[in-house]
């Protein structure tokens, strides 16, 4: 055993020496590459206020295509399968449906496996300390917003495989909003049988998002640095069938939804914070109601709501 450890130490030493040269951004880029290229199985817990959700995530490559599988381990079956750029949601209470997506939502933030340089518009990367997570040595990298309008992020990257081991979303007051932590990470040489099966399976056709009706030309006089409009459309809310104008904003890490609807007889609260870190701000302007929602401090959402304008010249 001792000789084994010694051998391990020697084997790990050149790698460790090499890693000391890496910048915070380089670590994140290696992580992004690792999430796309490596084959692995990771067991995770997702912590949100008083909820803990255990998950398993599998990732592999079958015929040069990325295939991934996410399973919620507690409660009724709730899974998601990704083959190439299609993600299919398999849930117990509704028929399966597929969407066009390059990532399964609900594990690591989608930005982690995307171009890291996209995040640089809104965030700075700073190297932190090292700690052991899921039995592996991890290097911490802080992703700090350039302005104080957002929560900050921390990620621990496995020093051997560069895969993420832990992710924290924290407020300015250092309060934890959300955490995802690996409890076991296994790097695989070949795609697991389940993923090969998934790659061969016929999945429902992708919902055609191109059919979404174009929205009005909404503009913002102010947005936090790095935020951009991702989608504009108008649709009806599921459940209430209420017609809304919709704008989706993102800075790569955080997604914000902006809704404009006819003011209702029962006004919504001006400001709400859910325990999952999601905040909601409502503003009434004339006979319109503006609802802004996302994992941002409510003050920022309020500023976004205030800055919404309708540009008459398209």
């Amino acid at each position: 055993m001792r000789t084994f450890l010694l051998a391990l130490l020697i084997a790990a030493f050149p790698a460790a020496a090499q890693q000391q040269e890496l910048s915070a951004k380089a670590w994140l880029e290696h992580m992004s590459e690792g999430l796309k290229q490596q084959q692995f199985k990771v067991s995770l817990i997702h912590l949100q206020a008083d909820h803990i959700r255990p998950l398993v995530y599998l990732h592999g490559k079958v015929d040069e295509k990325e295939v991934a599988f996410l399973e919620h381990l507690n409660g009724p079956p709730k899974n998601a399968v990704r083959v190439g750029n299609t993600v299919t949601f398999l849930e117990h209470d509704q028929p399966a449906y597929s969407v066009l997506a390059s990532r399964i939502q609900g594990v690591w933030p989608a930005a982690f496996s995307d171009e890291i340089s996209k995040l640089e518009r809104g965030y700075e990367f700073v190297l932190g300390g090292r700690s052991r997570i899921a039995g592996r040595p991890g290097q911490m990298i802080r992703i700090i917003p350039k302005d104080s309008t957002r929560y900050s992020h921390q990620v621990w990257v496995d020093m051997e495989s560069f895969l993420p081991l832990r992710y924290d979303l924290i407020t300015d007051e250092k309060q934890l909003v959300e955490q995802i932590m690996a409890v076991e990470l296994i790097v695989l040489q070949a795609p697991p049988a389940l993923l090969q099966e998934a790659a061969e399976q016929e999945w429902p056709a992708v919902i055609n998002t191109a059919e979404r009706a174009d929205g009005q030309n909404w503009k913002f006089s102010w947005l936090p640095e790095g935020f951009e409009v991702m989608v504009r459309d108008h649709h009806r809310l599921i459940g209430s069938q209420e017609a809304v104008e919709y704008v989706a904003l993102t800075d790569g890490l955080v997604n914000v939804s902006v809704y404009v609807a006819r003011a209702s007889e029962t006004p919504l609260p001006e400001e709400l914070i859910t325990r999952s870190g999601l905040s909601l701000v409502t503003e009434n302007r004339g006979n319109a109601e503006i609802v802004v929602m996302g994992k941002l401090p409510p003050e920022t959402l309020k500023r976004i709501a205030d800055s919404l304008r309708l540009d008459s010249q398209p």
Binding site: A101, S102, G239, T266, M293
Partner: peptide
């Protein structure tokens, strides 16, 4: 009820929009 519908829609949009390229 209205809050619920907004939150649900926000959650659904996360899924629908994740494949959208930045405008």
């Amino acid at each position: 009820r209205r809050l619920n519908t907004y939150i649900q829609d926000h959650m659904l949009q996360q899924r629908l929009n994740s494949g959208v390229a930045l405008d």
